[in-house]
Write a protein that binds this DNA or RNA. Sequence first.
DNA 1: GCCAACGTTGGC
DNA 2: GCCAACGTTGGC
Length: 154
Amino acid sequence: MNYWLMKSEPDEVSIDDVLGMPGRKVAWFGVRNYQARNMMRDTMKTKDGVLFYHSSCAEPGIAGLAEVASAAYPDESQFDRRSKYYDGKATREAPRWFNVDVRAVRKTRLVGLPELRSHPELEDMVLLKRGNRLSITPVTKGQWQFIVAKLLDK
DNA sequence: GCCAACGTTGGC
DNA sequence: GCCAACGTTGGC
């Protein structure tokens, strides 16, 4: 069992959007970073815990709880010429990009960056490291438990 | 809109 | 394989 933080721009897909989708599930397509891809493809497993993070918005922060809902499979958008995620170097035989499905569990109050930074228990979170831009980052079991038990419903 | 930080590309 | 140039991310 692993834990993750996954960033989404709420203008694109918010926690509320996912809660409203069939099965409360969404394909996490569009990741075009090799580190993030490798984590989805090689390490993520169904039922892994996910902190659903809203980024590039007025109030960036953790906005909900979710879980990994599938193993990784080829990201359809890489084959779609009309998609902004189209990749001409990817083929059906040799896909370059993969995604998992993510199921929303529940919305939480918004826990913003300043609040996360204020807790010494979270100082090693990859999300909070200087210059970090990865859209998918691992979360330790200790960080997960602290956030879920102490912050989300405060 | 700014800009720091980081990833990718491509010429050599 | 180096590295300068360029593109992207994302908080502010």
